[in-house]
Amino acid sequence: MSYLKRQCLATCCILAFAIVCGLWLGEHQAGPLPVRDLLVAVAIAAAAAGTLWRVGRAMAVIAALGLVLIFGTAWAIGAREARHAFNACVQDGEQVRVALANYHAMHGRYPATLAELAAPVPGTLRLPPHMLHYLSHSSGYKLSFADWLVQHEANESHPFEASK
């Protein structure tokens, strides 16, 4: 395989990584100022530029800028998905509690996972982990979801309560 083909293949791998990484980081934001995510974008751009530097400096810079743009677009899509998932949890979280109560009444236990429920589960993201977290135990369950600012928690005897 020629040098140019290897570099193009490496750049395509970096491109795929940038898309997946941008989407995942957008869906799982750590705060209002995404410093971690910006550092990842810079690292991806540097990897692309380093890969193509010997092919041509202009091509390396254009590829790096293009990958930052692609990463940013994937991140924005992920952030939008996270907002929709969070809002769905706020709006439909109590329906999950009702479905869990119905499941418990029919089976005498809570399900091991939310996938066992017949009801739709809010908070689904494109890449795991999903927004709504469920943990069952011998005497009940715990449901929770959060963004960088507020945590919502509920269990078998208490509806969702928000806390910072």
Rank of each mutant, 00 (worst) to 15 (best):
E27W: 07
N155C: 10
N102E: 15
W24N: 14
L132I: 06
S144H: 00
Y110M: 02
E81K: 05
A85T: 06
P111H: 10
Q151C: 03
I19W: 07
V55C: 05
A85G: 04
M1V: 05
Y110K: 03
H133C: 05
A119H: 13
P34D: 07
R83F: 05
G50Q: 14
L25S: 14
A82T: 12
C12K: 03
A30H: 03
S138K: 11
L114V: 13
G108S: 08
E153C: 12
V61Q: 10
A115P: 00
S163K: 14
L9A: 14
H133G: 02
V20E: 07
L132K: 09
E81W: 01
M1D: 09
G26Q: 10
L25W: 11
C8Y: 12
A79K: 01
D147I: 08
Q151Y: 01
C12S: 12
R80L: 14
C21Q: 14
I62K: 01
A146H: 04
A43N: 11
H137Y: 15
H107R: 14
L117H: 04
Y103V: 00
T113M: 04
L39M: 06
Q91V: 02
N87M: 06
P32G: 15
V98C: 04
K142T: 15
L25G: 04
P32D: 09
G123K: 08
Y3A: 01
L100R: 03
A30F: 00
F145K: 10
A105K: 10
L127S: 11
L9N: 07
S144D: 04
G66R: 07
L38Y: 03
L25I: 03
A63H: 14
A101T: 03
H137C: 04
G50A: 15
S2T: 05
